[in-house]
Amino acid sequence: MKISVQQEDFDLGLEVLDIQEDNRVGAVASFVGQVRDVPMTLEHYPGMTENAIKKIVEEARSQWQILDYTVIHRYGELRVNEQIVLVAIASSHRADAFAACQFIMDFLKTQAPFWKKEHHPDGDRWVNALEADDRAAERWRQLKQQQRLIKP
């Protein structure tokens, strides 16, 4: 059960090792996001960032079986190809691990207070929020709504 907002890089292998020890774990799903195209600086809101991630993870835990998890999000100066974010979920079965991993990533994108500033050759540019990211998060809300309607 680890949430970390840090400048340092992380090691996917070591992080997965940490969450797969429980005998009930039958599936680990992980996602790593990395910098593409141009270097960037990631700004965040210390304190709120950790709280926001905690809330997203708690929401995921209320919907899927999560035996253990690690969420790491980096901030500061990041070069092209450097890792930005890791979400790793350990569960008994793959369906829960996959779904929880995607859910947490989709909400990290729209709820956690991070901002990317890209360093282009012709100047710096703040990244604009994508509507596609909002839609990805919205999809989960609709799914939950539908499940509520189906379950009496």
Partner: peptide
């Protein structure tokens, strides 16, 4: 109280 633009992490 914090004011900020839509978030772009992940």
């Amino acid at each position: 109280v914090a004011f900020f633009p839509p978030v772009t992490g992940g």
